[in-house]
């Protein structure tokens, strides 16, 4: 199996959480001799090459960070330039987000099924998982912990050719957190998580409180 993989994130590759996810996913997917070509939407200079690869491929996987409940504007700009397929191409998706619960990604997922059809492709399903915001800020060890489960999903995709298996569906985790978990996580939001965000900001050179109001 050969797969064209497009990272739909507008963030540059170096800082792209989706890219780190794809690193692990493709490790698993390519174990049995499968191959892939990978492209980044954030690199506009490569758009002609991506279009050519799309035209020539019948197995396309687009990995997407959720942007305002759907696909990022930059990915939309690229997709608008494509010619819908007329053969037997298949299009599958990896959809990931910062918010952790499955319910947060369902509206985006619903669009992807429509998108595949609008581009003349059979829909190969979407691997849905949230809770990925911190990947870019993690050290190597913790990043490996966060992204390595995707390797198993790569194996599953290689075996099934799509994301429709129960194993892929279960990968999403809880649709919504149970009330006691929300109480606990809500407490962390006000303490440890808030501290983490301040630390993340400081690592980028932030000198203001995170709730600063520049325009009021």
């Amino acid at each position: 199996m050969h797969v064209l993989i497009i990272n739909g994130s507008p963030r540059i590759k170096k800082f792209s959480n989706t890219d780190k996810i794809l690193d692990e996913f493709t490790k698993g997917m390519c174990e049995g001799g499968n191959t892939c070509d990978r492209y980044e939407i954030s690199d506009k200079a490569s758009w002609d090459a991506i279009r050519k690869a799309y035209d020539e491929s019948d197995n396309i996987l687009i990995a997407i960070p959720l942007y305002v409940e759907c696909i990022p504007g930059l990915l939309m700009e690229f997709l608008e330039t494509l010619t819908p397929k007329t053969g037997n191409a298949k299009m599958s998706f990896i959809l990931q987000s910062g918010f952790a619960e499955g319910v947060q990604l369902r509206c985006g997922e619903a669009y992807l099924e429509r998108l595949a059809k609008n581009l003349g492709c059979e829909y190969g399903g979407t691997l849905v998982k949230g809770g990925n915001f911190e990947i870019r800020f993690l050290n190597d060890e913790n990043r490996a912990k966060a992204t390595s489960p995707y390797a198993d999903m790569g194996r599953e995709f290689a075996a099934c050719g799509n994301f429709n298996s129960d194993k892929c569906k279960a990968f999403t985790g809880p649709e919504i957190f149970p009330a006691p978990v929300r109480v606990l996580v809500g407490f962390f939001f006000k303490t440890a998580v808030r501290k983490n965000f301040i630390r993340d900001g400081e690592s980028l050179g932030c000198t203001r409180p995170l709730d600063y109001k520049p325009y009021s």
Binding site: P10, G201, C206, R208, D211
Partner: peptide, 14 residues
């Protein structure tokens, strides 16, 4: 387009 840099949340809030 938004480039997803997160600066509006973490580097130069707002």
């Amino acid at each position: 387009h938004c480039i997803g840099c997160n600066y509006c949340w973490l580097k130069t809030p707002g």
